[in-house]
Structures are given as structure tokens and as C-alpha cells.
Design a protein around this nucleic acid. Structure first.
Lengths: 129, 129
DNA sequence: ACGATGTTTCGGGAAATAGCGAAATGACAT
DNA sequence: ATGTCATTTCGCTATTTCCCGAAACATCGT
């Protein structure tokens, strides 16, 4: 009933206000990943990561699409999300050490030898976007 | 032990991620107020407002100082907070109707005839900063 | 000293959030 | 068809957040 016009902004800020979700966004800043890789890098249960990603998608910060049996995730390219994300990177500068460790681990996963059926489809992932 | 480098940023985002605290910041964008005026405008118990303000002060977004028996509040002018606050106003544009109603009510309070002892010391407050 | 007024702290109850494992779902491979 | 693997949904518990009223503080006026 009470149409609370601040609600959309509050939803976005609440979504941002969690260390795991910030780490996910920083990871995706280096390129797209699939859900299982994110879970592996963060050391969390897949169900936990899935729930975080649901929130990030609900607020339009992230987009997902299916590739075979994997779900790929990337930062949103919508006009409403871009400026907000761009404003976010400098704020995370203080955590660069941890975030670059995350990126390195994602990169390592990506390069691991694995059988074709174990390996999610190729995607871009760079150390320093 | 684990010194979580994202903690400071998460704290700030959590502080921002609440409609009441956003309304307080928007109110203070028009000028300083005392705690009881903020409580009156928002229609909340003074203790509730006090607790919100404690959070805002903890994260360096506002500053407070005593003036007689009143506590005045204003936006922080620290270098760390300024850019963040400046980035915030455009994000709140969608709630301009509600926020300007708040400002108008604060302005009205300010102009109410009141006995000297009931009246907080003078301060600046403008409709459109 | 006393009472009045503004503010903060404290205790508690309701609601939201975070994490997990187990079970359900969907897509591929054999 | 069946099994496997990636993902999501569900049920649950633990923790945190939010709001209030009562009580404690603090400051002013008389």
C-alpha cells in the first residue's frame, strides 16, 4: 500500500552491503564465470552462492544465462546498473589484496587441466580488467 | 583474526541501506537539525532516531555536537564522506516527492512560534540547497 | 535544590538475513 | 532409460536488525 519510493534504492544498497556479494561483483569485474566456479573460489556451498546471485539478479546488478548445464554469470550491462558499478570499484580499492587473490584463484581454476565434460565452456577472464 | 578488508565498506553500505537513514541524510542535505526535530519529521520515537544517528556517526557520514541541551546533527564534511554523499543525491532523485515533503515539514517546524525555552538555537535550513 | 526537557542506553519482542544440507529440477552423456 | 553433474528450492537454526517504552543521563531555568 504505502508505496515507499526509496525502496528500489534501499534494495540495491542492501544487496551491495554484504562482503560475499561484493567479492562476487569484483570477481565478475574480471570476466564472466559459472556458478560453481564462484562457489569454489569463495569456499561457500553452491546453494549459498545461488541465493546471493538471486539477490544480485533481482536488483539488476548481474545477468545470468544457461550454457549447457552451467549457468554463466556476468555483470549487468543495463544503463541503470553501469554507473553504480563503476562507482563501486574505487570504493573497494582498500580490499585489493583479497580481491586479487580471488581473481587469481578463478584464473587458476580456469586453467586447470580437466576432462571436456568437467570443464565449463570457455569464457573470458583476465587478471587485470 | 581474519581482518576482513571489505568490512569498512560493508559497514557504510549497511548504514545507507535503510529508508529512515536515507531520509535523515536527505534532510540534513538541506541544513543542520537537532535530534528532536528529526524525530518529529520522521514520526519516530526519539530513541529510535538516536540509534539511527549513532550508526550514521559511527560510519562517519554525519557529525553531531551539543548546543545547550540539544544535540545538533549535520552531514559530515570529512574528505572520506563527501564524495560518497555527493554520489548519493542523484540516486535518491526518484524519491524527490517524499524527501521534499520531509524538508518542508522541517522548515515548518523551524518557523513555528515557540517560547524561547522550547526553541532550539537557530540554525540554517533551506528548502533547496 | 528541584523540575522540566532533550538525549542516550537498556531490555525485549518481531522481523529480516545468512548459512547449510537435503531434496527437487534440468540438461547432458552413455 | 539411467546416471551424473550443475543449479535451485526448501526447511531449519543462528544471528542480526528494527522499533519501542522505561529508565538513566545531562543540561537548563527557576
Amino acid at each position: 500500500m504505502t508505496s515507499d519510493p526509496l525502496r528500489p534504492l534501499v534494495d540495491i544498497l542492501k544487496t551491495l552491503a554484504h562482503p560475499v556479494r561484493l567479492r562476487i561483483l569484483a570477481l565478475l569485474h574480471a570476466g564472466e564465470l559459472c556458478v560453481c566456479e564462484v562457489a569454489e573460489v569463495l569456499g561457500l556451498a553452491p546453494s549459498t552462492v545461488s541465493e546471493h546471485l538471486t539477490g544480485l539478479r533481482r536488483t539488476g546488478l548481474v545477468r545470468e544465462w544457461k550454457v549447457g548445464r552451467w549457468v554463466h554469470v556476468a555483470l549487468s550491462d543495463e544503463a541503470s546498473a553501469r554507473p553504480l558499478l563503476e562507482a563501486l570499484w574505487p570504493l573497494m580499492a582498500g580490499a585489493e589484496a583479497e580481491l586479487s587473490r580471488d581473481r587469481a584463484q578463478a584464473l587458476a581454476l580456469r586453467c586447470d587441466p580437466c576432462t571436456p565434460s568437467d570443464c565449463p565452456p570457455s569464457r573470458t577472464l583476465q587478471e587485470h580488467p
